[in-house]
Amino acid sequence: MEELKKRLIHLHHCRGIGSKGILKIMKIDSELKNLYQFSISVLQDITRISSENFSKFYYDLHHLDLTKILTIYSTHNISCMTIFDKEYPFILKQIYNPPLVLYTIGNTSLLNYPSIAIVGSRKGNEYAKKSLEQLLPLLVKKRLNVISGLARGVDTIAHQMTIRYGGKTIGVLGSGFFHIYPQENRMLVENMKKGHLLISEYPPSTRPQKWHFPMRNRIISGLSKGILIVQAEERSGSLITAEYALQEGREVFAVPGNMMESLSKGTNLLIQQGAKLVLTGEDILAEMNI
């Protein structure tokens, strides 16, 4: 493995330091050639992290056995992709704060083809199913990958229905691969390992944390040409994803709903603010020039 890639992956596994700290080190040592030669005081001065976090970081930097870790990943068909690799998706590099390392299981060639993100409420109901039954067949026929976040509700419906219609789907996790969340999607995840793609910016042993999920949303929107919101409450993670999409210049689509229902308030608000109202698959394809 190329030394820069190996050292970046090593840094990514160290406790106590996040992407900001890693970028500070790379600002001083862009190819990480001196990573293991820095003195404690120099590294403390560069990273500016708390003494407690620094102790964890410095210990892991000099004690983690990366070869052993990567061997375990290999037995689980987990690959590591860094921002310096040629296969790293160019479209994702363009976002603010792109992930430095991606962990993947499955068909990474899907990253070379256009995708649409489909997200919505964890309480997604029969209306979400009926809406996607009307919209997905044409998107699948046009070979658009469907990206979502493997959450309960609309995300799960989008993944499952795409597979049922013979399409390809990409799941972006808010945890490491060894801690699938929610647990009820374990079978879906196993199914997606065969011919589809799973992505996480978190090392496989990372347990899900509340703040991981808004961060995951920037990858969902960052990998897609457009994003479709199906059922969302007025304050919802789906709207965070839509906000990321707007910031990155992606197309934003929304399925309208009954104005008396809470699950329609977010999507109707997006339409009011300029999102494309969607009634058919053609509405999406026309806007995305596909």
Rank of each mutant, 00 (worst) to 15 (best):
R250C: 01
I163D: 00
V42P: 01
K130I: 12
S224F: 01
Y202W: 13
S238Y: 01
I17E: 04
I116Q: 03
H62L: 11
V252Y: 02
G120S: 07
G237E: 01
L92H: 05
V140N: 03
T162W: 02
H196S: 02
R143H: 14
R152T: 10
N77Y: 15
S51K: 15
K27C: 07
E190S: 14
P203L: 01
L246S: 05
F178W: 14
S131E: 07
I46E: 00
S221W: 03
T47C: 15
Q37D: 12
T82C: 07
L111W: 04
M192W: 07
G171M: 09
A158R: 08
G167S: 02
S121K: 01
L279K: 14
Y96Q: 13
L23D: 12
C80M: 11
D283C: 03
L188P: 06
I46A: 06
E133W: 10
L11P: 03
G149A: 09
F54D: 04
Q44D: 11
P214M: 09
T104Y: 02
E201G: 00
L198N: 06
G149D: 00
H76L: 13
L64I: 15
H76F: 14
G106V: 02
E3C: 11
L277A: 05
L66K: 10
L246W: 06
K193T: 10
D60R: 09
T47P: 10
I78G: 00
N185T: 10
K56T: 08
R152H: 12
N191R: 15
S148W: 03
C80F: 06
N258V: 09
S55E: 13
T280D: 12
W211R: 13
H12K: 09
L228C: 08
D29W: 02
F38Y: 15
S221A: 12
E234A: 10
I40S: 12
A117L: 06
K20S: 14
G106P: 06
R15T: 05
I69M: 09
H10N: 09
Q94G: 06
K276L: 11
G176H: 07
A286F: 13
G153I: 04
C14V: 07
I69P: 04
Y113E: 12
N53F: 08
H76Y: 15
V119I: 13
F253W: 01
Y73M: 08
D155G: 01
S30I: 13
V230H: 03
I290M: 11
S39T: 15
I271Y: 04
E282V: 04
I49G: 05
E31R: 15
F90H: 14
I180V: 13
F253G: 02
V154W: 04
R122S: 06
K93M: 12
I199K: 01
L135T: 08
L285W: 07
M161R: 08
L198P: 04
L285D: 08
P182M: 13
E243L: 08
K5E: 11
I271L: 00
M187R: 15
M259R: 14
M215P: 07
I229E: 01
L269Q: 12
M26Y: 05
I91D: 04
T267F: 04
I284E: 07
H12E: 05
G237M: 06
A151S: 09
G226K: 01
K142Y: 11
Y165E: 10
G21C: 03
R218M: 10
L111K: 06
L285N: 08
S205A: 15
I219T: 02
S224K: 04
